[in-house]
Amino acid sequence: MDDQTQAPPSSPALAGPALAGPVLAGPVLAGLATRLPPHVWFGVSAVFHYLGPAFAVLLFPHVGVLGMAWLRIATAALIFAPLTRPWRTFARADLPTRLLLIAFGACLAVMNCSFYLALDRLPISLVAAIEFVGTIGIALAGLRSARNLAALGIAVTGTLLLTDVKWASDPVGLFWAFLNGALFVGYIVLGHRIARAGAGDGIAGLGAAMAVAFVVVLPIGLADALPAFFSPPLLVAAIGVGICSSVIPYVCDQLAMARLPRASFALMLSLLPVTATLIGILLLRQIPGPADCLGIALVVGGVALHRPASAG
């Protein structure tokens, strides 16, 4: 028996009108959500997962770390607001669902801030490795077959080869990195529960949660973000980071989570170092060595070997 879905679509807190709201981009996205395999949506998310932070780090000297987090979340919240109408989502939701959306939004806010604070002090490979630790636990919790256990072992081995983790002596940076890793687990668990309501409802829930995230981060990074409002090129760049970091990948995650068991999604996160390596080749001319190539092969092989519950 393979890994089981942790939150069934019939969950009372998420079923029916609890997250009812307009579907992002209407029937076009709804049609693509069902026609395209969930792995395609995950692949798009995986690419933008590293494009966004790569651009954000370049803006740290101009708007500060927390200012960049504020601009990222504000951009996403303002884009989602007219499309998903979060006020209607909250009005129609029952109390358990409202609490779930508030928890998800708070998780998004603190996770994004801690991620950037960690990147400001530690190498991205170390931050990514710490982030991946929690996802291993999620994947293990959902495994019910020797085949999927072997797939996880192969993928983890490949990830370790890719990240080339070197420990750091920065306790503050490590604190933020481990906090980000813990909240990333929360993002997967809470996001999966929302996504199981269905692709359209899940995105409406994401829009509502992003509005909560903006409220949480509003007093934290506003002062640092102010210089962007007096520099149009800087503001445009920050908006681009927000779209790349919190709009495209989060929507794609919802579309993937809606059709993948939680453990399967957690295992596929081992592909993130692969996309980082490929982006390094294409954009930074960073050619991988033999160990990197072996790591890529192992991760891809592990994900290919895995079989979600829906596969029978």
Rank of each mutant, 00 (worst) to 15 (best):
F104N: 13
P123A: 12
I203N: 04
G240A: 00
P96R: 12
D224L: 02
A309M: 10
V47E: 05
R121Q: 13
A150K: 10
L51T: 08
L36N: 03
F229P: 12
V241C: 00
V300H: 00
I279R: 04
I188V: 14
L122C: 10
P232S: 06
L271G: 14
I73K: 07
N180K: 12
A139V: 07
N148F: 05
T157S: 15
E131I: 06
P261T: 01
R144W: 07
A238F: 02
L269T: 12
H192L: 08
A54C: 06
G221A: 01
L160N: 06
A109N: 02
V156F: 03
P261I: 05
R85C: 05
L206A: 06
I138K: 07
D253Q: 08
D2C: 07
V44S: 04
T84W: 08
V215H: 09
L83N: 06
N180F: 15
A146I: 13
L305M: 06
V172G: 15
R193G: 01
R98L: 12
F175H: 07
A109L: 07
W70G: 00
V299A: 05
D170W: 11
S246H: 10
A266Q: 02
F132M: 14
F60V: 13
G31V: 05
A69V: 04
A168L: 02
L140H: 06
I243Q: 04
G202F: 08
R147M: 02
W41A: 06
A223W: 09
L14Q: 11
V63H: 10
S11W: 13
N112G: 03
G312I: 09
L179W: 11
L59N: 06
A182N: 02
